[in-house]
């Protein structure tokens, strides 16, 4: 046996799962798709005497269409999102982001909730979901609460989840009318690797005039970054001076650091390249 012995607890409801997490505190961890967590346990990077199996709770693996968007259950796999007609038609940028992760086997097992709750700084889905101002539902001892995904990421591998709380689903509001979005990832190592950085961009237009630009990034700080202060682009065209101002704002809001996939200097340079490329791609589609 490669993994140190543990007990897999299989609750039948969120309330029961929450109780188990509260009871065992730091000795327990929820397990969703069990991709990253099981690998980390195999490598003995982490050990938990108890795993609380979220797969045994019914109803967490659904994608539901709602009037103002879609709701994706925490246990929905990356592959299901990638292939979902609903997601592909209405939120192609989300399908695109999930389809770039790892390989088909990883995407068959890894879950949407697990990906978000792991809160790694260089994952593909967070920029696409942040771009669309998604919200997450958390269930805990005090009941349910809904918070913006932006506020869910609090630090490297750290989230707003409190003791006994479980991520239940992510709500993606409909794309603004007249908008297009794109997700670009830069792989510094192999294509199946984590990205060096990811850039999601959205441009919405009205009568050919720019109404809004949104940017969300990953791999460029301890948490995914939703870029603020881009309101000035309204009614502008993306000429060199406007692009320079955008890139300046991005540069101020990121805090990249050295890892296997590049130095801080390199990542700042690549952030410029990929933000520019994402905007150019959206402009060329217009």
């Amino acid at each position: 046996m490669t993994i140190r012995s543990f007990d897999l607890l299989q609750p039948r409801s969120l309330a029961e799962a929450s109780d188990l997490l509260l009871k065992h505190r730091d000795e327990a961890r929820p397990i969703a798709g069990g991709t990253t967590l099981v690998i980390l346990m195999k490598q003995r990077a982490v050990h938990y005497p108890y795993l609380v199996d979220l797969q045994s709770i019914p109803g967490l693996n659904r994608i539901a269409k709602e009037v103002d968007g879609i709701r994706i259950g925490a246990l929905v796999t990356h592959r299901t999102v990638e292939l979902s007609r609903l997601v592909r038609n209405s939120f192609p940028v989300v399908a695109e982001a999930f389809s770039t992760i790892g390989n088909v086997r990883v995407r068959e097992t890894a879950s949407v909730g697990g990906n978000l709750a792991h809160a790694d700084y260089r994952l593909d889905p967070p920029p696409a979901l942040l771009l669309l101002k998604s919200e997450v539902t958390l269930f805990g001892p005090g009941g349910s609460r809904v918070i913006p995904l932006k506020d869910f990421f609090t630090g490297m591998y750290e989230t707003a989840l409190e003791a006994g709380e479980i991520l239940v689903d992510v709500k993606i509001p409909n794309m603004p009318t007249g908008s297009k979005a794109v997700y670009l990832r830069h792989s510094a190592l192999s294509a199946n690797d984590w990205p060096c950085l990811g850039v999601a961009a959205l441009v919405s237009k009205e009568n050919g005039r720019v109404r809004e630009l949104r940017l969300a990034l990953s791999g460029l700080a301890a948490t995914p970054v939703s870029v603020d202060g881009l309101e000035f682009v309204r009614d502008c065209s993306f000429d060199d001076s406007v692009l320079d101002r955008i890139l300046g704002i991005v540069d101020e809001q990121i805090a990249p650091f050295y890892d296997l996939r590049g130095s801080e200097w390199y990542k700042r340079r690549m952030a410029r390249v990929f933000v520019r490329r994402a905007i150019a791609q959206l402009e060329s589609q217009a």
């Binding site: 897999l8 069990g34 099981v38 086997r105 990883v106 068959e108 097992t109």
Partner: peptide, 11 residues
Amino acid sequence: PVSSCFLLAVR
């Protein structure tokens, strides 16, 4: 297709 190396048998 799945990777059996990180799939828990009980699941």
